[in-house]
Write a protein that binds this DNA or RNA. Structure first.
Lengths: 191, 191
DNA sequence: GGTCGTATAGTCGGTTCCGACTAATAGGGA
DNA sequence: TCCCTATTAGTCGGAACCGACTATACGACC
């Protein structure tokens, strides 16, 4: 049993899937993609197998069988353990309750916005706003499609959240660009 | 000259500082902290020295002198290069213009909100909302203090953005908790 | 009946990131 | 003077992350 707890969100996704039924790694990845969860979790083949191994080492999941089809390499099917189920719920609860500091790239960039100069900064913010508007449209149509199929809203609740967050970012970008253009956000010579 | 470009935001922060004047690594970290930039950038001693080394390898910065005080180990002072200045501005521009996919922990958690069950989910969201309200207050007083000192708004513009984003998240958390409580967000048996 | 694209399934080597740990000095108080 | 704490400055090993690459099977098309 290794030292620190797993705090990698891909592990949360995989564990969540295994609560439904046993799967082999590749199947976990494709199931997540089917359900559009690849917008909430970064699924990279390398990380996938690393994470499965880490989960197994912590005994949150365990191999239940290795099947072989044709002469291809064996696929190991994993299932969750009781420990895994408990850790999943506790972790989830903690993630929702406690906001943790994260460091989005946009915040980093805005910290040095001064360096772009007023014209270029306003331009760039307006371009960002256009991109965000497109993404919001995309989210809306994904939501409409899923609801149209009769799936419960809860299945896409994270898309509703992300849409809301994008809208807020869009509003800020537009407002800030306008303030720069109007001069109500003054630009010091040094920054 | 190594293969891929540096895309670590701590590198952006360090490079931005060195545009002002040469510094040694520890000084960069403490200057960032003085300016409250440690809320926008994750400053970890390990990453700090790794990043400085990477920047030097890419020739975006270069050592200008090594000073020694007492019998302590030498401190290497770095300055930006012309290449570094150009890359900084181009990178900044790109970061503002193009939203990139990120994977916040809260989105991961919301994706599996169903697993908490309606009561616990609503509870957890309400608790998050309280935490967010506190952070917003903290941001407000930091902003008030800085403006009170006569510093230009642009110096804290990223705090304004983060405050706005937190407010949006707070609104969503409260609204969603209320929808769960009222039953207008139905909970399927399986999720 | 060859071959082309797509889906399946994963390996590997490197880069990045992290945080616990080390260690020296300065300043203040008992 | 001696000790305690804070500040300065950095090291190191391990964990996480990444993406290019490998390789097989299968159906469609010509």
């Amino acid at each position: 049993m290794p030292s620190r707890k797993i705090r990698n969100t891909l592990a949360l996704a995989l564990l969540g899937l295994l609560l439904e039924r046993p799967m082999h790694p590749y199947e976990m990845a494709s199931t997540l993609r089917e359900r559009y969860k690849d917008t909430s979790f970064k699924i990279n083949p390398g990380s996938l197998y690393d994470t499965v191994e880490a989960l197994a080492k912590h005994r949150w999941i365990e191999p239940v069988e290795t099947v072989r089809e044709g002469n291809r390499p064996e696929r190991t099917v994993y299932a969750h353990t009781e420990l895994g189920r408990q850790e999943f719920v506790a972790w989830l609860d903690e993630l929702v309750r406690e906001p943790v500091a994260e460091y989005p790239k946009f915040v980093a960039a805005v910290s040095y916005l001064g360096a772009l100069g007023p014209e270029r900064a306003a331009d760039a913010l307006e371009e960002r706003a256009r991109h965000l508007a497109e993404r919001i449209e995309g989210a809306d149509s994904a939501l409409a499609e899923t609801v149209g199929k009769g799936a419960p809203r809860l299945f896409m609740i994270e898309v509703e959240f992300v849409r809301h967050a994008w809208q807020a970012e869009l509003d800020w970008a537009r407002r800030t660009a306008a303030e720069i253009r109007s001069g109500s956000l003054p630009w010091p010579e040094t920054f």
